[in-house]
Amino acid sequence: MIKWKEPRTEKIPLTQKWALIYQIWNRNFLQFKRFWVISLLWILIEPLFILGAIGYGLGSFVSTINGVSYIVFFFPALICTSSMFISYFVSTYDNFSKLNFQKLFTSQMTTAIEPQEIVLGEILWATTKGAMSAVGVSVIASFFGLVDSWRIFPALGVIVISCLFFSCFGLLITTFVKNYDQIIYPSSGLIIPMSLFSGTYFPIENLPFGLKYFAYIFPLTHSVRMVRGLLSTGFDYWMILNLAYLLILIYILIKWCSIRLANKILN
């Protein structure tokens, strides 16, 4: 039976609600802090390898793309994609364990905390980790002269929104899957194709048939378009639509996650 409503809600002052959300976020932050060197290395090393291998290695065979060097074309997509992976995987694997093995959510629920705060706290944490990776990669890229403008700041703002979406999506997946192995289906079926065909490695205009319109379903297409616009091709008003698309999806997913998780842990 599909339930479209949270089993119960109790209004509390917003300050109190955010204090509780912060507690959930902070628990994850304290855990991260303990091994922060390793954790940070893990979220930086992969994007940097890809930057080297694809951006500089493979990119050196491409003279220019849309009028810019391949690395300039590729860098905005890289920070979008790698932060997406991190938010998504933190949101799925970590939360799957908390939900099913550690029973952490159930015991957090014995306090003033209700499912909606767990949802928001966990989503914000996964977003934080994704954003951390994008910031780290941008700092390192600035040494290579890839980041040399204040426009990186609004671009990172877009990354946060993008990570929010993938954190929500990951948490939603977590409420559906029965075991770790099942997490691989949405990963291979959706997240990885998205990382390839969202105007990341090549412009979506190069997609055959009408597929370039299809690519606009992918949230990542919108993130990449905005970040690339801010960092290289320039701002245009379509970006407001890109942003709106992501925000609407985020709103729907947060609602959906709250309902799913509440029905799971409250039963």
Binding site: R27, L30, Q108, I113
Partner: peptide, 8 residues
């Protein structure tokens, strides 16, 4: 301490 936090 974490649970004290959850109870604000």
């Amino acid at each position: 301490m974490l649970y004290a936090g959850y109870q604000l």
